[in-house]
């Protein structure tokens, strides 16, 4: 039962979060300073997601084998290789480092 409550509750909350901005603020022009903020939002949110998913586990900061794998994947992306290749390389390198460690 706990799991079904989790699923239902999280679904409703996610729907509400995604709907809030469009319902309340949709269809009108933002002031120009606000569109400047909007334009800078993707690099900020994505950078924060990347570092927290690589370097944290809950509230702990740490480093494990996946850091090496993500770095390998990042190098391929930087050199313009396709995303699918980069994620597979990241997983393979991480698995290799773990197997050797």
């Amino acid at each position: 039962m706990t799991i079904w409550l989790l699923i239902g509750g999280m679904a409703l909350l996610t729907i509400a979060i995604k709907a809030a901005g469009p319902v309340l603020l949709g269809g009108r022009e933002l002031p120009s300073w606000a569109s400047g903020v909007v334009a800078l939002m993707p690099p900020v949110l994505l950078a924060a997601l990347v570092v927290t998913s690589v370097f944290s586990d809950g509230q702990r900061i740490g480093v494990d084998a996946s850091v090496v794998g993500v770095a390998a994947g990042g190098l391929l992306l930087w050199r313009g290789r396709p995303l699918v290749l980069a994620v597979i390389a990241a997983a393979a390198v991480t698995a290799l480092v773990r197997a050797l460690a």
């Binding site: 993707p42 690099p43 994505l46 950078a47 997601l49 990347v50 998913s53 690589v54 084998a65 996946s66 794998g69 993500v70 994947g73 990042g74 992306l77 930087w78 995303l83 980069a86 994620v87 990241a90 997983a91 393979a92 390198v93 991480t94 698995a95 290799l96 773990r98």
Partner: peptide
């Protein structure tokens, strides 16, 4: 190493 895929995925978007 599947846990390395999630951050790499977002790194691709970030770059």
């Amino acid at each position: 190493g599947l846990d390395a895929i999630f951050p790499t995925f977002f790194l691709g978007l970030l770059i």
